[in-house]
Simulated scan of single mutants.
Amino acid sequence: MAGFFESLFLAITLAVSLVVSLGITVPLIGALVRLRANYNPKALQLDPEGNVDVHTGPIVTSFFGMLQRVYRIEGWAGLYKGLMPTATATIVMTGFAVAAMDSRTLATHGRVDPPDVGVLAAFVYAVFGTLVALPAAIITYRSIVTPYRLPYFRPIYSLRILLTPTERRRPWILYLTPGLVAAQVLQIAYTVVVLHGLRRLLLPADNISPVKFGIYVAIEMASTTIICPLEVITTKLAIQRNHSTAEYNSVEQEVEDDAVEAPEYAEYSGQEEDVIGLRHEKDPYYGFADCVKRIVDEEGWQTLYRAWWVTVLAAILSALAAGAAIVQSMDVGHN
């Protein structure tokens, strides 16, 4: 009976944590994704036919500026775009961590931080995280940047808007989105193998040194130089759609609108502008290296570090959570 109440208390705690976490983080994640996805080249570009393409996105250089712009154009509903896919992915990842690894904290599909477990278990968690994170990132990021209003409880309808007919017929093609798997694998490998390994080395479960903890925090913060560009690249690649139209590249938008008629936020807000600008559908990124090169050439290397301080903050919070977990386990052991 005691075990039942303990499990019930854990379930209630995680549920409350999930609601509070999503209520706070979803608007912030939405602004971050839009800021990093916004396409704003430094100079005029040529379209595939050689004509000058003057399409650029709005010039928004700050995280809070994007947050304010989203609220002005799309209102509260726009701030919570991406809520359902984020919640679903979080529940799946947390359920796996609780059931398989006896974790007691929420897990997300953003930064895949494994629970404080062994190397093999962390690897299993990373593999599972990769399988879940990639389609979750695609659906979440697309639901955030789409101009269409997506209902919360009609997933099939929403997927018809977010995914192309090719992606719905062959959902595994999402894993073949050029460059996306490479970006996800590099990010998760660095987080799980490098940072998790250093955490176990510098912060053993039975002891914690202030000096070693400070070194670990510094390493987490310095890792922003690697993780932030990978997050930006992942965002830009995830919003590219796959299709099988012969006359178009495989990652470009569908030629037809898929006969989906959905209301746009502009119809409700009275605004005639989109929150962000996106790259022309006939000129996609062809892979990881091509994405890096084009971002640097067209938008500048600074684009790779948009909202870098958010990544630094996430690193600090991750380090503090690891330290707190060790202190808590030491207290339990002493008692």
Rank of each mutant, 00 (worst) to 15 (best):
S244D: 15
L46C: 13
N40S: 14
L313H: 03
E267F: 02
I73Q: 06
A136L: 05
Q184K: 07
H280R: 14
R142Q: 13
T303R: 11
P178D: 13
H243A: 13
P210R: 01
E264R: 12
Y39A: 06
L28G: 03
M84R: 00
L120K: 12
I24M: 11
L22N: 00
Y216G: 00
T130P: 00
D331H: 02
F123R: 04
T88K: 00
I316T: 05
M1C: 08
E220N: 10
V211E: 12
A259T: 05
Q271Y: 14
Y216L: 06
S7R: 15
H55S: 15
S103F: 07
I91Q: 08
T146L: 10
G57P: 07
Q328L: 04
F9V: 05
Q328P: 00
H280A: 15
D283V: 09
P115T: 03
E298Y: 07
P171T: 02
L44T: 05
L198S: 00
P151W: 10
T56I: 10
V60R: 06
A259K: 04
D290W: 11
V255Y: 09
E6K: 04
F288I: 10
T94N: 02
V16F: 03
A246W: 12
A262L: 08
P135L: 04
R306F: 05
E267P: 00
N40G: 00
R199M: 10
A183M: 10
V310L: 10
M101N: 07
N249L: 15
S17M: 06
N38I: 09
V232S: 13
R72W: 03
